[in-house]
């Protein structure tokens, strides 16, 4: 296997996670449960967008066809997107959104923590910068999980339902294939099993503090990393890419 190509897969999938999740965040803008929270969520969205931009620029470099982050975001089709099914799930109510972000943030945080020691120079620098942002995301969303879990009866029920429903999309973060094995061997990415153990530890700790149940279901959905998505993604891309595709000769800067 070619190292460059394996990196391209990984970097694209990470960039797509950030891009697609930021798209969902922007759907909340102006509709948040309180003004202060609207502002906090926009901050998270801006961090994710910035991360998506640097990752997809790097993906373009690795690909070597002269494409930049905008080309990657606006000119690929559904099957070429490699984001997790988790991040493309609709926002639902605020508990659904928080549960989705929380599971992703725990993964994102521990992954970046390890990427600080990656053999890839870009990823080391990227992780160094992004970990500060993501530490804040994780703090923000885990606090909301705790508040909902240990808040009112209604919020407890809503967050437990949200967690149970979205749980099946968490397994995809830790699925291994020959690319991940290869990248791990090359020191680009961390050991997936160890990452999973850290994720489970943190999730258990927060759910415990929230008086919430750790889901028992073991079935896990997959497909996003292979470009096989839910029906959601097509609509998101239709929205995102509408202008660029309608006016292929236009520049927007």
């Amino acid at each position: 296997m070619n190292l460059n190509e394996a990196k391209l897969q990984f970097v694209t999938s990470q960039g797509d996670d950030a891009l697609i999740l930021s798209h969902r965040v922007t759907e909340w803008c102006g509709h948040g449960p309180e003004l202060e929270e609207d502002i906090a969520l926009s901050n998270i969205g801006l961090d994710l967008l910035g991360q998506a931009q640097s990752l997809l620029n790097y993906a373009g470099e690795l690909e070597g066809k002269g494409r930049n982050a905008d080309d990657m975001a606006y000119k690929r089709i559904e099957r070429e997107f490699k984001n997790l099914l988790l991040v493309e799930q609709p926002n639902g109510n605020y508990a659904d959104t928080i549960a989705k972000h929380f599971f992703y943030d725990v993964y994102h945080y521990f992954l970046l923590l390890d990427l600080k020691n990656s053999s890839d120079e870009f990823l080391r620098g990227f992780a160094e910068k992004s970990i500060k942002e993501v530490a804040y995301h994780l703090r923000h969303t885990s606090q909301w999980v705790i508040r909902f879990g240990d808040g009112t009866e209604e919020s407890h029920e809503k967050i437990q339902t949200a967690i149970n429903q979205i749980w099946k999309y968490t397994g995809e973060m830790f699925m291994k294939d020959e690319i991940s094995d290869f990248l791990e061997k090359e020191g680009v990415i961390p050991n997936i099993d160890a990452l999973k153990a850290k994720w489970e530890g943190k999730v258990r700790e927060v759910l415990n503090e929230s008086t919430l149940k750790y889901p028992e279901t073991t079935f896990m959905a997959k497909g996003g990393r292979d470009g096989i998505h839910s029906e959601n993604l097509g609509y998101m891309l239709t929205d995102m890419q509408y202008l660029v595709r309608t006016y292929p000769d236009a520049k927007w800067d």
């Binding site: 922007t26 803008c29 801006l46 982050a69 905008d70 995102m240």
Partner: peptide, 18 residues
């Protein structure tokens, strides 16, 4: 926001609305 035609425009718009 979801239809902004470049990542730069999208970021600027989100920061502005924020």
């Amino acid at each position: 926001l979801t239809r902004a035609p470049s990542l730069r425009r999208k970021m600027i718009l989100l920061a502005k609305i924020q």
